[in-house]
Design a protein around this nucleic acid. Structure first.
Length: 730
DNA sequence: TTTTAGACCATTTTT
DNA sequence: TGGTCTAAAA
C-alpha cells in the first residue's frame, strides 16, 4: 500500500513524529505548528503502516470539540470511519469504562453524572445537614476543595487534618458528600477519573485486558493533564504501551484548576526511552508576531525550550495603543475592526481578546453603538440553561428515582405546593433512614408523616414521574420528552418567564429536536451492547452532562469574535486585538504576586499573541473604571518584554494630546500621532457656565456638529454640542 | 408565592 | 458599577 500521502507534505520533525517507531514520544508542538495534523497522520500511520487495528488505538483529548475534530479529520484522511477506535475526552473515556464495568466499580447500572451545578446544590444540602454556617463555610469553596482532592486522586480517608478543625470540617463535608453520591448512584466529573483509576487498580485482570487491547495511546494538550489524569494514563500504559504525548509547556494556562506542567517535564523519565520531538515551524503567524511571542516567553524559567520560526515573511509591526480610558479603548478597537471590514476583510476574521469577562461589557457597548455584529464566546451553553436543566432533571428522575440532585431541582418546579416545610420533613426522614429523597417521599406518604395537604401535593408528583416512565416504554425518546414537557407543565411554566419566556419555550422545543437527532444517529456498537449500553435516553442524558453543547446556535452572520484569552486557545484569527494590557489586569492582581502565577499569566499572553495570523493590536487604557471607581493604570510589563523594534505605538500615552478634530486613521499606516493639537483633548479638565467643572471623556463628529461628553463633578456625564456649549479649558 | 430592596463581592473554565 | 443572592414585604 502506498502510504506516501501520510508524510509527503510534512516538514522533517512532523514526519519524524508521524513515522516514529512504536515507542513513546513527547511531541513539543508550538502554537500553529500543525499539532492536530501530526496526531491525525500518526493514527493513520499506525493503522496503515504498522497494521494496528483501530480497535487497539486510544486517543485522548480535553474537550469534546477537539475529540470531534480529531475524529472527523481521521475519517477524512482514511476515507472511512475507523470502527472500534477509542477517541474521546478523558472524562468521556473514563465514563465509558465505568458504564462497561459498573459492577466492578461498585456503581449501580443506571448511575448518573453530576455536573457542577448539581454538585454545588448537593454540597449546599450537606452543609445544611451538618449545620454548618454558610457564611463561614462557603459551599463553593467546599466544592472546589472536593474537586481539588479528587484531581489529586485523594479520598477522604487519605486526608489527615492533623488536628486542624477547619481542615477536619472540610474532610467531613467531603466524606458526607461522597456518601450521598454513592447512595444516589451519582458520579461527578472528578469521580469519573478517580473511580476508573481505582477500577484498574483494584481489578488487575481488567487492567491487563485493556493493556493488552490497546497498542498505542495518544494524548493531546498534554500540558493540561492533572495528577489523576496522568496517573490514569500511566496505569493504562503500563510498561510497554507506546504513548505519544503532544503538548506545549508554554501554553499551559490551566494550572489554577489542577493542570500540572510538571507532567510534561517528567514525561521522559516516567516513560523511559522517550525521545522529544520539537515542532517549531509555525504556519500561522508573521515573523514579527512570532519574534514577539518568543521574546516574551523567554522571560519564563524552566521551560522545555522552543523557538518558533516561520518562512512566511516579516509582516506588519504590532500596534500598541494607549487609550485614555476603557471607553476610548473600545472605540478604537471597533474603529480598527471596521476598517478591516471596509478594506474587504471578513468580520469573523477579527477577534477581540481580553483577560477577564468583565471587560466585554464596554467592548459590547461600543460594538452596539457602531452597529457592528459580534458574537461572544463562552456564555451559557445549551445544556446549562435553566429550562433545559429542569427538563433533564425530569428525565433523570424517570431514569433513576434515587437521583436526589434531580429530585431537589424539580420537586416543586413548576410550583405545585410543595413548600420548604414539606421538603424539610422529607429531607429529615431521608437523612434518618439513609434513603433517597424519592424513597423518603414515598414512605413519608405511606406512614402519614405529612399533612394531608402536603401529601396531596407530593403524591401527584410521584405518580407523574411513574406514569411518564411507563409511557416512555412505548414511545420514541423525543416523543417521551415532548410528553414530559407537556404533562409536567414545564413548557407552560417557562413560557411565563417575563422577558425570556419565548426563548425558553424555544429552547425546550430545541431539546426535543436534539433528542430526535440524537436518537436517529445513535447506535451502540458491539462493545456498547456487550456492556449493556442499550438505552437511548440514558445515553442522551449522559452526553448532555459530558458535553454542554455550544453557547449559541450556529451563527451564520459575519461577526466579530469576542472571548477571553483562555477560550481563545487553539483558535487563530487574521486580526487580533488584545485589550486591557495593564498591570493588575493582565497580569492579573490575583496572580502576579507569586512567580508561578506570573509565569502562567505570561503564558496566557503568549497564547494571545500567537492567535494572530497577520496583524496584532495590543491596547491598554490609562484610566479604567473598576467597580465604579476610576483608576489610574500603567501598561502591562508584558508590553515591555516585547522588543521595541517589533512595536509601533499608535499614540504615546497621555503626553501626546489628542485633539478633538483628530482625523480618525484611514491610511494603512497606524502611526498618525502627529496631528496639530487644538484646544481640547480627552481627559482634559474643562469648565461649563451652568454645569461647572468636569473631565472631557468622549467626543464624536467634527466641525460645527462635533459633540463632546463631559463628566461633570456635580451633575455627572452630559453630551454637549461643542460649538454651543462655550466650554473653557482649565 | 412572587416581588423588591439591600448586602455582598468581584480572574481565567472544561468535563 | 452591576450582577447575584438572601431576606423581608406585598
Amino acid at each position: 500500500m502506498d502510504v506516501s500521502h501520510l508524510i509527503d507534505r510534512l516538514n522533517p520533525p512532523q514526519r519524524e513524529a508521524v513515522s516514529a517507531p512504536l515507542q513513546s514520544r513527547l511531541v513539543l508542538a508550538g502554537a500553529g505548528s500543525g499539532k492536530t495534523r501530526v496526531l491525525v497522520h500518526r493514527i493513520a500511520w499506525l493503522i496503515q503502516v504498522e497494521q494496528i487495528s483501530p480497535y487497539a488505538i486510544m486517543a485522548v483529548t480535553f474537550t469534546n470539540k477537539a475529540a470531534k475534530e480529531m475524529r472527523s479529520r481521521i475519517e477524512a484522511l482514511l476515507g472511512l470511519t475507523p470502527r472500534g477506535m477509542w477517541v474521546g475526552t478523558f472524562h468521556g473515556l473514563a465514563h465509558r469504562l465505568l458504564r462497561a464495568h459498573h459492577r466492578e466499580a461498585n456503581l449501580p447500572e443506571n448511575f448518573q453524572i453530576l455536573d457542577s451545578d448539581d454538585q454545588l446544590r448537593l454540597v449546599k444540602r450537606i452543609c445544611r445537614e451538618l449545620n454548618l454556617d454558610e457564611k463561614r463555610w462557603d459551599p463553593k469553596e467546599l466544592t472546589w476543595f472536593i474537586n481539588a482532592q479528587k484531581d489529586e486522586g485523594l479520598r477522604p480517608q487519605h486526608l489527615d487534618s492533623y488536628g486542624d478543625s477547619s481542615w477536619q470540617t472540610r474532610i467531613d463535608v467531603y466524606k458526607a458528600y461522597e456518601e450521598a453520591c454513592q447512595r444516589g448512584g451519582m458520579v461527578d466529573f472528578g469521580e469519573l477519573l478517580l473511580r476508573s483509576h481505582e477500577l484498574w487498580l483494584n481489578q488487575p485482570v481488567l487492567l491487563r485486558h485493556y493493556q493488552q487491547r490497546f497498542q498505542a495511546l495518544l494524548v493531546d494538550e498534554f500540558q493540561d493533564t492533572n495528577k489523576i489524569q496522568y496517573a490514569w494514563l500511566r496505569m493504562l500504559a503500563g510498561e510497554r504501551m507506546p504513548v505519544m504525548a503532544v503538548g506545549d509547556d508554554d501554553q499551559s494556562i490551566y494550572g489554577w484548576r489542577g493542570a500540572r506542567i510538571e507532567n510534561i517535564q517528567n514525561f521522559t523519565s516516567d516513560f523511559p526511552g522517550t525521545e522529544i520531538i520539537r515542532l517549531e515551524q509555525n504556519y500561522r503567524s508573521t515573523d514579527t508576531i512570532l519574534q514577539a511571542a518568543n521574546a516574551l516567553i523567554a522571560n519564563n524559567q524552566g521551560r522545555m525550550g522552543k523557538q518558533l520560526w516561520t518562512d512566511s515573511g516579516e509582516g506588519e509591526k504590532i500596534a500598541v495603543y494607549s487609550a485614555f480610558n476603557e471607553q476610548e479603548e473600545a472605540r478604537f478597537i471597533v474603529e480598527q475592526a471596521e476598517k478591516w471590514a471596509d478594506q474587504g476583510g471578513m468580520r469573523q476574521e477579527v477577534a477581540i481578546l481580553y483577560r477577564s469577562n468583565a471587560q466585554s461589557r464596554v467592548l459590547e457597548e461600543a460594538l452596539v453603538r457602531a452597529g457592528v455584529p459580534y458574537r461572544i464566546y463562552g456564555g451559557q451553553r445549551f445544556y446549562d440553561r435553566l429550562e433545559i436543566r429542569n427538563a433533564l432533571a425530569y428525565l433523570r428522575l424517570m431514569q433513576n428515582r434515587h437521583d436526589d440532585a434531580a429530585m431537589e431541582r424539580v420537586i416543586n418546579v413548576p410550583t405545585r405546593g410543595i413548600g420548604s416545610k414539606t421538603l424539610e420533613t422529607v429531607r429529615d426522614y431521608a437523612r434518618q433512614q439513609q434513603v433517597s429523597l424519592w424513597q423518603a417521599s414515598v414512605e413519608a406518604i405511606e406512614r402519614r408523616l405529612l399533612s394531608g395537604r402536603a401529601a396531596g401535593a407530593l403524591l401527584p408528583f410521584i405518580e407523574l414521574i411513574n406514569q411518564l416512565q411507563r409511557d416512555s416504554e412505548s414511545l420514541a425518546m423525543a416523543d417521551t420528552i415532548a410528553l414530559m414537557l407537556q404533562h409536567s407543565g414545564l413548557v407552560e411554566h417557562h413560557e411565563k418567564d417575563k422577558d425570556k419566556g419565548e426563548a425558553r419555550a424555544e429552547n425546550l422545543q430545541e431539546l426535543v429536536n436534539a433528542a430526535r437527532q440524537f436518537e436517529q444517529s445513535w447506535s451502540p456498537d458491539e462493545e456498547d451492547e456487550q456492556a449493556g449500553l442499550t438505552d437511548v435516553l440514558a445515553a442522551f442524558i449522559d452526553q448532555a452532562a459530558l458535553d454542554a453543547g455550544d453557547a449559541q446556535a450556529a451563527e451564520f452572520s459575519d461577526c466579530v469574535q469576542l472571548m477571553t484569552l483562555h477560550s481563545a486557545k487553539g483558535l487563530e484569527f487574521p486580526l487580533v486585538f488584545m485589550a486591557g494590557l495593564e498591570e493588575s489586569l493582565f497580569p492579573h492582581s490575583m496572580s502576579m504576586e507569586d512567580p508561578q502565577g506570573l509565569e502562567e499569566e505570561r503564558r496566557l499572553c503568549y497564547v494571545g499573541i500567537t492567535r494572530a495570523r497577520q496583524k496584532l493590536f495590543m491596547t491598554w487604557a490609562e484610566s479604567r473604571r473598576f467597580y465604579g471607581q476610576e483608576e489610574r493604570r500603567t501598561h502591562s510589563r508584558f508590553l515591555r518584554e516585547i522588543p521595541e523594534q517589533l512595536l509601533e505605538e499608535v499614540r504615546l500615552g497621555a503626553s501626546i494630546r489628542r485633539p478633538l478634530s483628530f482625523q480618525r486613521p484611514t491610511s494603512p499606516s497606524f502611526a498618525e500621532a502627529e496631528v496639530p493639537a487644538t484646544e481640547f483633548y480627552l481627559g482634559q479638565r474643562v469648565i461649563h457656565g451652568t454645569f461647572g467643572e468636569g473631565i472631557l471623556t468622549n467626543f464624536e463628529g467634527q466641525g460645527p456638529k462635533a459633540r463632546v461628553e463631559v463628566n461633570f463633578d456635580d451633575v455627572g456625564s452630559k453630551w454637549l454640542i461643542l460649538s454651543m456649549a462655550k466650554l473653557q479649558a482649565l
